[in-house]
Design a protein around this nucleic acid. Structure first.
Lengths: 228, 228
DNA sequence: TTGTCGGCCGATCGCCGACAA
DNA sequence: TTGTCGGCGATCGGCCGACAA
């Protein structure tokens, strides 16, 4: 998974330790989040000094939801709790952090997800993330390609029209909504990569129901429409 | 699952022993059909006299394919290999078999599965299985309700029209094809129950590909259309 | 600046008889 | 008797500007 897109999807509240970082592992905290049975922790220490030896940025194949898999190794007895390698270099040097790429997130409105198949693009997003339009054209239009977390490419028609003028995604948007099973309240994340390519990620809203099959989503979409 | 519909779906080549019947269990034959690993049969006898103690007529929830689950208990040493209970009564008395209900099977044509959403009903099926139409009307039409193996009800518009006249299922048929994921070559089974109610079952054609998700089916449907 | 609405146009769906196998 | 086809009318998807929040 593209690391910049991953970070943008995870949001600014989320930090991931680099490989080589010294961290504390809290068995009780881990157990609280576990869904399966947990071995008895009575004999376990409350925290274990560890070193990060591997970090993998991953995404769920079906939902595009991002998560990270971190491999920890306990520090040897007597080993100092200090970062090593890249982590040590980054800690002493703020310039070691890669520059934050331009990204933008928008929560889908009812109109975005339900009506006539269009997506209203906030001006900031269109002007700072998307490739520049040729405003001499009438109307200004371009084809916009974006890769999702799996590297799959999606194309949209990006047009600047209407009175007053606004940016819209039209052709291709409806297909994206259906394939990704997006609903009002879900969020869309756009990232401009270092190479100028556009990446698109998702943040799904928390919901009471799980949606394994298309049928239940269809029902829920119908209910949402019914409220309007 | 409705026993009459189950038998019609399984076809006339299939017989199921009644509870109480004495049967032989062939471990080797069972192993040949098993998909998982099999314990060593070297020490197993080639055949084991057993008694049928339970029979359950079942159907796959997603595909509607029918199957049966038969519980066997080995006969005691010295116990005679003879039917008991209902099975013995049925064996000596041909009238013990329930009368075969009226049923009809048709393999779906391309027109049935692909085109304009209609199903061409063979005359025999319409006249012997379906409720009688009022032929004085112009055209003769009725709403036909049928329950599938799960007891779910489906409704179709049954009309007798065209030149020359023929029976068709129109409204409701397309929905049925899509929900059941039917393709040309699959078969449809209609049964008139003892109470006069109509039951509908499926027999899927053997195919090279498995179809878990709608996507692959859509692709295959497109290929089928492309061949036409 | 942008969310929602009604209008409208084109594509698709699905019902129809014609015709032939 | 029934499988396939072309036609065509109704419905739906989706692009549009208007308008107001």
């Amino acid at each position: 998974v593209n690391a910049q897109l991953w970070l943008a999807c995870a949001g600014s509240m989320c930090t991931v330790p680099p490989v080589g970082a010294a961290v504390y592992y809290f068995p009780e905290g881990h157990a609280e989040q576990a869904t399966g049975p947990v071995v008895d922790l009575a004999a376990a220490p409350p925290l274990v000094p560890c070193r990060v030896v591997d970090v993998r940025f991953l995404a769920e194949p079906h939902t595009d939801e991002v998560y990270v898999k971190i491999r920890l190794v306990p520090l040897l007895p007597g080993e100092p709790v200090a970062d090593v390698g890249d982590a040590a270099a980054a800690a002493g040097d703020d310039d070691g952090q890669p520059p934050k790429p331009a990204s933008f997130a928008k929560t889908l409105t009812q109109s975005d997800a339900n009506n006539g198949g269009g997506f209203s693009v906030p001006r900031f997003c269109a002007e700072t993330i998307f490739p520049a339009l040729d405003y001499r054209a009438e109307p200004p239009v371009q084809t916009l390609s974006a890769r999702d977390v799996h590297g799959e490419e999606w194309t949209f028609r990006h047009i600047y029209r209407g009175t007053p003028r606004r940016h819209l995604l039209t052709t291709g948007w409806s297909n994206f909504v259906n394939k990704k099973r997006l609903l009002p309240g879900d969020s869309l994340v756009f990232v401009r990569g270092e190479d100028g390519g556009i990446h698109v990620g998702l943040r799904r809203a928390k919901r009471a129901f799980c949606d394994d099959d298309g049928g239940s989503v269809a029902v829920r979409r119908a209910l949402v429409r019914g409220n309007a």
